[in-house]
Design a binder for these strands. Structure first.
Length: 762
DNA sequence: AACGCATATTTGAGT
DNA sequence: AATATGCGTT
């Protein structure tokens, strides 16, 4: 316990023991930054600082969890779990939940993910009758997000000449108004998006000085990891909290700032000296992770950028191997070369699968590697893409949870009101939404007091709406009665999700049921863990945790010894013996969008620096001369970044990067040109109708469609496709009269009688 | 209302 | 290429 200081070098030790006043720790790649942070916290705890008086903010949940585990081994589990340690989003979500009433939010507010936010933007654009082609939800949302991260309110936005002219330039002059409505809708629905968690914290601290003071007093020591990647909103929260005691320690590396696209300000770390005069600076310059070759190569890359904080990262490890550069003719060959190399290296040097990582610029590149690895039967794990919580069945169930804790949550309601199908379709929802918009109420409030005349729906529909309200209300009433797990399990079955999935006998259907059960078990685990930590587990806290999880946060136990595939962004902070940086081509890395701007290029270059410094022993860079993008074959040449590396650290076949290059950097050949035969134009563009084919008699020859008045509740019927069933209900007037039929095998369906050919069974 | 097929759109990184 | 959206059919 006492000798932990001996495990540190001089710079590290000073950063650990100098606990009072502002500290800036510039931590070069692989310089033991996490070690400093964990030991610093352990050191504070040993000086009798109470764990709940320490606030430590990390970039990912995973970083927080790992740090907690390491601290626990030094100071015990109990101390470690009382720390305020987590991501900005999760810590301030927790605080906001506690203080929500001051902001007019329910304490059970729910959190919109990006999909929810996009859907909301989409519906606002529609409502405002704007051109949906010009106002792409993603683009609008990123404008809104940037405003929020800069703490620019809708009113300020409308007055901000820069933003307005940028919006006009991109054909979206009305973003400020969408932003305003978006905020109003979120507030009305009792939901926050990711940016709101930080924005609202700022509003809370700005408008309620006594609350700010409370938290200023609560945290005696503040630490921030990855400070170079904080945005203005995060920066200001920290600044306010540290205002009095100034016991703030920020750790970061300007050379690894890679998130400006989402509002991070590299200036935050560069301006630390101005914000906190009298600060102490500690430079961690010895790299313990990588070979000398890798460190030197990385240094030669970052040298090409301007205005870095002066530092000299060095390694005293072995000189090691040069960085290899591999050329492939196609993306498929690239996959083949890399996987072969992994296969051979593992055999030759007796390495494990977990010692290998394939890093790429974009998630879309993962596919060819997955295929190549599968062909060779090499085990791999992949981050990003569709994570567990993105799956439809999981999102459906989570939406029921959200609606249960917060019935105002509009996107959750829209998602599940007709899933499983209960006959509440687009027409009905249009009416309900119109009523909600007209009255300024939430959809839920409209449903609560729904009357047939007010909504202009028929009695049958009204009944279904009421049934849905009753279902959700029953769940909500049990929030206090049942444990999170019991309630969740009840929702899964009573909502009809389980029944719906059981009707699907396919392999995928079985998998979906497994996923639901896995989620339910996850709640069980969550409850046990929280109880051990002395916190009462609830559906609200479970939802919050899940909303702020990333795919890196749910690694299974059987994933431990596998080859890792991930983007370079998500590799930040990780290390591997052997790293493959793939697709290092102009237009991909650096990305096409960045090549016109020197600032953007520098960020790409820092990303490349991050990639190279992940490697402990071997780094391999590859590029492909051709690859498919958007299903189109494109040609490219090697990235300028390869040329940024000092050649003495490279092992490269010179002609590979100087050989003849296609005239066009990203020339693409339209898909049709590649097809040899069977061109669409070779065939007459006539749709063949086989229904009258003599060899294939119509199956429904014996079906005599019943006239609509024969279809009444209780009657047994047969349908061409769905088989036998019983009529449950009939509603509506001709020609839109429809029947609800419970089929023996196909489940309950709603059929429009003018189309459905139903045969009466006697 | 629900399904199947044709067409449009996406991909730049993630809390 | 894979997924989202729109349209016609039952």
């Amino acid at each position: 316990m006492q000798n932990y200081l001996d495990e540190l070098n001089e710079a590290q030790r000073s950063a650990v023991v100098e606990t009072e006043g502002p500290s800036l720790v510039i931590a070069g790649a692989g310089s033991g930054k996490t070690r400093v942070l964990t030991y610093r916290i352990a050191h504070l705890l040993q000086q009798e600082v109470k764990p709940y008086r320490i606030l430590a903010l990390t970039f990912t949940n995973k970083a927080a969890r790992e740090m907690k585990e390491r601290i626990a081994t030094v100071v015990g589990q109990h101390n470690a779990s009382s720390l305020w340690m987590g991501t900005f989003h999760s810590i301030f979500a927790r605080i906001l939940r506690f203080e929500s009433k001051h902001l007019g939010y329910p304490s059970s507010f729910t959190i919109y993910d990006t999909t929810d936010s996009k859907n909301l933007v989409k519906s606002i654009v529609k409502k405002m009758k704007l051109n949906e082609k010009a106002y792409k939800p993603g683009s609008v949302l990123s404008r809104i997000s940037s405003a929020k991260n800069d703490l620019v309110t809708p009113v300020a936005y409308a007055r901000d000449a820069n933003r307005i002219s940028a919006d006009k330039a991109s054909q979206m002059p009305m973003v400020y108004e969408i932003y305003s409505q978006y905020m109003r809708e979120c507030y009305k629905s009792g939901v926050m998006d990711f940016d709101d968690l930080l924005l609202n914290t700022n509003i809370l601290f700005r408008d309620f000085p006594d609350i700010l003071q409370k938290y200023q007093h609560q945290y005696d020591y503040i630490m921030v990891d990855e400070y170079q990647d904080t945005n203005f909103s995060q920066y200001l929260i920290i600044k306010k909290l540290a205002e009095n005691h100034k016991n703030i320690c920020v750790v970061g590396d300007d050379a690894q700032s890679i998130y400006s696209f989402r509002g991070a300000k590299i200036e935050n770390i560069l301006n630390f000296r101005n914000d906190y005069p009298g600060y102490k600076i500690f430079k961690l310059e010895q790299n313990y992770r990588s070979s000398q070759n890798i460190v030197n190569a990385a240094n030669s890359i970052i040298d090409k950028n301007q205005g870095q904080i002066q530092k000299n990262v060095f390694s005293e490890n072995q000189i090691g191997n040069p960085i290899r550069v591999l050329k492939a003719y196609s993306d498929v060959e690239e996959g083949f070369l890399i996987t072969n190399d992994i296969y051979e290296k593992r055999m030759k040097y007796q390495q494990e699968f977990k010692d290998f990582a394939i890093l790429y610029r974009t998630n879309a590149q993962s596919r060819v590697f997955e295929e190549a690895l599968r062909k060779k039967n090499l085990p791999y794990k992949i981050y990003g893409g569709l994570s567990f919580y993105q799956r439809k069945e999981i999102k459906d169930l989570l939406a029921y949870f959200r609606l249960t804790v917060n019935p105002a949550d509009q996107e959750a309601l829209k998602r599940v009101i007709n899933y499983p199908a209960r006959g509440i379709g687009k027409t009905t929802m249009d009416k309900v939404t119109a009523a909600a918009d007209a009255s300024g109420k939430t959809i839920w409030e409209i449903l609560l007091n729904a009357s047939a005349t007010q909504l202009n729906v028929n009695a049958g529909t009204l009944k279904k709406l009421h049934a849905f309200v009753a279902l959700i209300a029953r769940f909500a009433a049990q929030l206090e009665q049942l444990s999170a797990y019991e309630l969740a399990a009840d929702i899964a079955s009573a909502s009809g999700i389980m029944h719906d999935l059981h009707g699907d006998k396919s392999i995928e259907g079985q998998g979906r049921i497994d996923n639901i059960n896995e989620l339910l078990n996850g709640i069980k685990d969550f409850s046990t863990t929280k109880q051990e930590e002395g916190i009462t587990p609830s559906l609200v806290t479970f939802l919050e945790e899940v909303s702020l999880l990333t795919d890196q946060d749910n690694e299974g136990e059987d994933d431990i010894n596998k080859i890792t595939l991930m983007t370079i962004h998500s590799a930040k902070g990780l290390e591997f013996k052997n790293v493959y940086i793939v697709g290092v081509e102009e237009g991909l890395f650096p990305s096409l969008q960045s090549v016109d701007s020197e600032k953007a290029l520098e960020e790409e270059r820092r990303l490349f620096y991050v990639a190279v410094t992940r490697a402990e022993e071997n780094a391999t860079i590859s590029f492909a001369r051709s690859r498919y993008k958007y299903g189109e074959l494109t040609y490219s040449r090697p990235s300028r970044f390869i040329g940024d590396i000092d050649q003495s650290y490279l092992e490269v076949n010179a002609e590979d990067i100087t050989s003849v290059q296609p005239k066009n950097n990203t020339a693409s050949i339209p898909r049709n040109f590649r097809k040899v035969g069977n061109q669409p134009s070779d065939r007459p563009n006539i749709k063949m109708n086989y229904s009258g084919s003599p060899t294939k008699p119509k199956i429904n020859l014996n079906f005599n469609a019943a006239t609509p008045d024969q279809i009444v509740p209780g009657v047994k019927v047969e349908h061409e496709r769905f088989g036998r069933g019983k009529v449950i209900n009939v509603e509506g007037l001709e020609p839109n009269r429809k029947a609800t039929v419970a089929f023996e095998n196909a489940g309950q369906k709603q059929l429009l009688l003018k189309f459905a050919k139903l045969k009466i069974l006697t």
